[in-house]
């Protein structure tokens, strides 16, 4: 049974088994590879994307739940040629090393900032719980604060 949802602002329909993980429909059927597979058990956060603006670990989220919803992936985070504050901050702080987990972290961060525009260190510790094996956490914390600053600065 096909499932229809909005992906990065455009309506799409996928044929994937409605009970299968959304991650694979996005990666293989819709061919967007920025959302990563890390563990398949919602334990690492590499597959984090947004469902109606909330961070969701898509390896453990069934396709059928996406019906009618708005999905954003790392490829759709920046819109209309304007880089998203989180991605801009990640560039400024030169956060990535291997880079594999970074889309998940950026999506988790963008969702947090939508709820908590100026997070404290404690907010960050509580909300950003993905795994980065290169351990780029020191720069991530700086980038998260910087992203909040960019977002909160009138342009």
């Amino acid at each position: 049974m096909p499932t229809t949802f909005i992906l990065n602002g455009r309506p799409v329909t996928v044929q994937a088994d409605p009970n299968s993980p959304l991650l694979w429909a996005i990666r293989d059927e819709l061919n967007l590879k920025g959302t990563k597979f890390g563990c398949g058990k919602a334990a690492c956060g590499a597959c984090t994307l947004h469902v109606d603006g909330k961070a969701v670990r898509s390896c453990s989220y069934a396709v059928k739940f996406a019906e009618g919803k708005s999905i954003t992936t790392i490829e759709g985070l920046s819109q209309e040629g304007k880089i998203h504050p989180v991605q801009q901050a990640w560039m400024e702080e030169i956060v990535p090393q291997c880079g594999y987990c970074q889309p998940g972290f950026m999506m988790a961060t963008a969702a947090m900032l939508a709820e908590i525009p100026d997070p404290t260190d404690e907010d960050i510790d509580r909300n950003i719980v993905n795994v980065c094996r290169c351990a780029t956490y020191y720069r991530m914390r700086k980038a998260i604060h910087r992203a909040a600053e960019i977002s909160n600065t009138p342009s």
Binding site: G34, E75, S78, Q87, G99
Partner: peptide, 8 residues
């Protein structure tokens, strides 16, 4: 490789 890694 910064841009590629930030843009996914």
């Amino acid at each position: 490789d910064l841009q590629d890694k930030v843009m996914g």
